[in-house]
């Protein structure tokens, strides 16, 4: 219990102290909101799909969460290179609590980032259902847990940051672009929809749309079920790989 707390606290402290990381992580969502939200808005409306910004905002929140979470999980690689990983590897606490604490910390940080992006989206003109904000934060936390665990599972298998670019381009980017964050899945070609169904972020963004705007492609219970189940699997994978690290 204490181990989970202290691992969590470390992640949160490190994040809160690096102002440049917080601001840096906001750049991309702002760019997407402005360029796509304002740029594609008229086209979207003409196609009879309604307000694009309302559609896009949950997707961009999902984007900032997946990026922050995976990046946070990958911190394991830095810890390995700076040697700090050894300190946690010899500690007399279960790998599960170390993994869980780290994942929780990374997820807390990513959720905070998601809330900031929500605020920015509101400034940009996004009008969510205000009663949905608290449930949305809960959904954000679920998405963040899922991808923090994934990031850590992947990072446990990598020796250095060399693999990072590979992960970004062949895992994170496809997960984001194929998730329906930017376009409606309901009208997507069958092949694309089929792929999106295997992307956990699809369900995350869909759940966010449910609670924030009320219109979505899948049912909310399916979204939540998938998120919880996949998070469980990734956590288990993370513990499995993490406990096999040799330093």
């Amino acid at each position: 219990m204490n181990a989970i707390y202290i691992m969590w606290l470390r992640e949160v402290k490190r994040f809160a102290r690096s102002k440049s990381r917080i601001v840096g992580a906001l750049g991309q969502p702002i760019l997407f909101l402005v360029a796509l939200g304002y740029g594609l808005g008229p086209v979207f409306k003409q196609a009879g799909q309604g307000n694009y910004l309302d559609f896009l905002a949950p997707g961009i929140i999902g984007m900032s969460i997946i990026f922050t979470s995976i990046f946070n999980g990958m911190q394991v690689i830095w810890d390995r290179q700076f040697g700090f990983l050894k300190e946690t590897m010899v500690a007399p606490v279960s790998r599960l609590s170390i993994m869980f604490g780290r994942t929780l910390g990374g997820a807390t940080v990513a959720t905070a980032q998601g809330v900031l992006v929500l605020g920015i989206a509101v400034i940009a003109g996004f009008r969510p259902d205000w009663f949905g904000v608290i449930p949305a934060i809960f959904v954000m936390l679920l998405i963040a847990l899922l991808f923090s665990a994934l990031g850590m599972a992947v990072a446990s298998r990598l020796r250095d940051m060399q693999g990072f670019q590979l992960i970004m381009n062949f895992l994170v980017m496809p997960l984001f672009f194929l998730s329906g964050a930017l376009f409606p899945l309901s009208n997507a070609p069958a092949a694309l929809l089929w792929v999106a169904r295997f992307d956990p972020l699809s369900y995350g963004v869909d759940a966010l749309r449910h609670v924030l705007t009320g219109s979505a492609a899948f049912s909310l219970s399916l979204d939540l079920l998938v998120l919880v189940a996949v998070t469980g699997v990734f956590l288990w994978l993370g513990v499995f790989f993490f406990s096999r690290i040799e330093v």
């Binding site: 102290r17 690096s18 810890d79 700076f82 040697g83 300190e87």
Partner: peptide, 13 residues
């Protein structure tokens, strides 16, 4: 308990 030969501190703390 162990003191490692190589550094193992968290430099950001």
């Amino acid at each position: 308990g162990i003191v490692f030969q190589d550094p193992s501190l968290d430099e950001d703390l």
